[in-house]
Structures are given as C-alpha cells and as structure tokens.
C-alpha cells in the first residue's frame, strides 16, 4: 500500500546523514537509520557522518535486553548490503568520549574537524538526526 516511489530518473545528489545523538535516550538515531535504509533505494551518493554523541550509535556491546528498547545497532552492519559504504566519524568527537575505532561496531573512516567541514560543504543535502 505504501510502496516507495523508486529513484526519480537520473538525478544523483550528494546526501549526508549527520548523526549527532546517542542511541536509546531518544529515537533520532533509530529513525535516522530507517531513512538511510529506505533512501538507499534511490541510488544517491550517500555518506553517513557520526559526530558529537552520534559516535555512541556505533558503540560495540549494546545490550538492550533488560531495558526493553529495540537494539538496532546490528543494523549498522547491514548498511554495506544497501551500498551505504561511506561512513565517517569525527576524530575530536571520538577522542572527547574516550572512544577508538576498535570500540565501533562497523569500520569507519576517521576525519579531522576540518575534513568533516569540507565533506559537509560539498553536499547537496544534509539531514541531521
């Protein structure tokens, strides 16, 4: 009944999904991921950028069993199957939170703040979650 429209002919835009919020405390990271997964059908040039508390979305070892909240962190591993392969995390955000790439559930490219700024400036569309 609610079928998606599919990719509108020919237009390819650079779309960045910027994740700035931690999982579970609010629904933004989960519903943001849902946009990325549905949006993959449109064959756009997609990047996901994790900054500020967004880097916690990728933290290994999330176990929501007792809290009863949906644990969606394994879904980040599925991004590759949707051809969403450009994942970036800001170095400063990781450092500030005492995280290293080994703490993350998927491989990411770590960028400096200046590199993130440059990446963002080159996008057609930026959505924050």
């Amino acid at each position: 009944m609610y079928e998606e429209d599919g990719a509108p002919g020919g237009i390819v835009k650079k779309i960045a999904y910027v994740n700035r919020r931690a999982p579970h405390g609010t629904i933004y990271a989960l519903e943001g991921l849902e946009v990325v997964l549905i949006g993959a059908a449109f064959d756009q040039d997609v990047s996901m950028i994790f900054v500020d508390d967004g880097v916690y979305d990728l933290k290994r070892g999330q176990d929501t069993g007792v809290s009863g909240i949906k644990n969606f962190s394994p879904a980040y591993r599925a991004l590759e199957m949707y051809d969403v392969e450009k994942l970036y995390a800001e170095s400063e955000s990781l450092q500030k939170r005492g995280l290293v790439v080994e703490d993350l559930i998927v491989p990411v490219e770590v960028l400096s703040s200046a590199e993130v700024a440059e990446l963002l400036a080159g996008q057609d569309i930026v959505l924050n979650f």
């Binding site: 609610y2 599919g6 509108p8 237009i11 946009v35 549905i38 949006g39 569309i125 959505l127």
Partner: peptide
C-alpha cells in the same frame, strides 16, 4: 496524507532546497 519515507528522500532529490526544523 500518510506515506512512506521515500517521500522524504524523493523531495530531497527533486526540490532545490530542503530545510529541516526540529
């Protein structure tokens, strides 16, 4: 009207600008 998330991405692709409020 109620529709899928594809409508957001389609709007992002088709429109000249997308502005988010939240």
């Amino acid at each position: 009207r109620i529709s899928g998330l594809g409508q957001l991405v389609e709007a992002a692709v088709q429109a000249d600008r997308l502005v988010s409020f939240g």
